[in-house]
Design a protein around this nucleic acid. Structure first.
Lengths: 151, 151
DNA sequence: CAGCTTATTGCGAATCGGTCGCAATTACCG
DNA sequence: CGGTAATTGCGACCGATTCGCAATAAGCTG
């Protein structure tokens, strides 16, 4: 996806903060916090301010380049390049990894709500917290901790 | 549900803040913010502090009396008496009402993730934003009028 | 390239939801 | 009626995010 043209389409200027934020965002596979994006950007160009990063991120969200999601029960927002809307987040509480899953859940939920409950779904947000395949199928009956707990 | 016994089961003391918070929480049908709960509680007994309300709410969440959810994209957490886990929130962006919906979505999502993806779901959170039945099935192509913003 | 206009930035202060440390209370047990 | 640990009230604190405003610079236009 081309940042420049995407910005131009919306009559927005191509600036250093925007270029850098986009670079960081699209290069990282992970779900980053605004803070860590700021740090990465700042490491490249110390002149870029935190506010600009925040402003740029919400701008990107508006024009559909980025997506914000609150994954942790408490934590700050996480950012990622925009995806298809039908993505749900699987957050592993053991290793903190975040998987994407796109199935027909969202689609069928949408139509179910529309058909039977007259509710027109616009945005569907699904976050599932649990344990991923790598961290073992079942949490030991007691110790609720990392894959290699110090017993 | 009986607050006193529920607290006693967990070796917790029955105090004024806890009694009042529970009263407010269970009497209101709505999804309240900690702030508004504090205000209501405070109106009854001005001696109750904000911190206590926060502490009480998270305590209630821990012992399964209350449930916290982030409904708005940005807003503060909302609180409600605990429900079955299989509840999803339908937030109407036109009238701001919040409906509950319990279907097998959650259940089937759980088993699907478990069966096909080795992901053991613990907590499933689904928030659907859109338009409720009352606010009209389809948003007029332009005028985003609010039929009856209420509750 | 120089000049102009105005979108965007940097800066720092402000806001806001929520948490914390600690001394004063107070619920509950005997 | 104590004794004692759980809980509270208080106020300072925190981290994420936002805001106002003057300075800067992107993108014309000539």
């Amino acid at each position: 996806m081309d940042l420049e043209s995407e910005l131009r389409v919306h009559d927005l200027r191509v600036t250093t903060p925007r270029r850098l934020v986009w670079q960081v965002l699209s290069e990282s596979a992970d779900h980053l916090t605004a803070q860590s994006i700021f740090e990465k950007v700042n490491a490249v160009d110390a002149a870029v301010n935190r506010s600009s990063v925040y402003r740029t991120l919400s701008l990107f969200a508006e024009i559909g380049l980025a997506r914000e999601s609150k994954l942790g029960e408490d934590e700050a927002s996480r950012w990622e390049p925009a995806h298809a809307d039908d993505e749900i987040h699987l957050v592993c509480e053991s290793c903190d990894s975040v998987l994407h899953h796109s199935g027909d859940v969202v689609r069928s939920l949408r139509s179910h709500l529309g058909d039977h409950h007259d509710f027109e779904a616009r945005a569907v947000e699904i976050v599932v917290r649990g344990r991923c395949a790598t961290c073992g199928p079942a949490p030991a009956s007691e110790s609720t901790s990392e894959p290699s707990p110090a017993s």
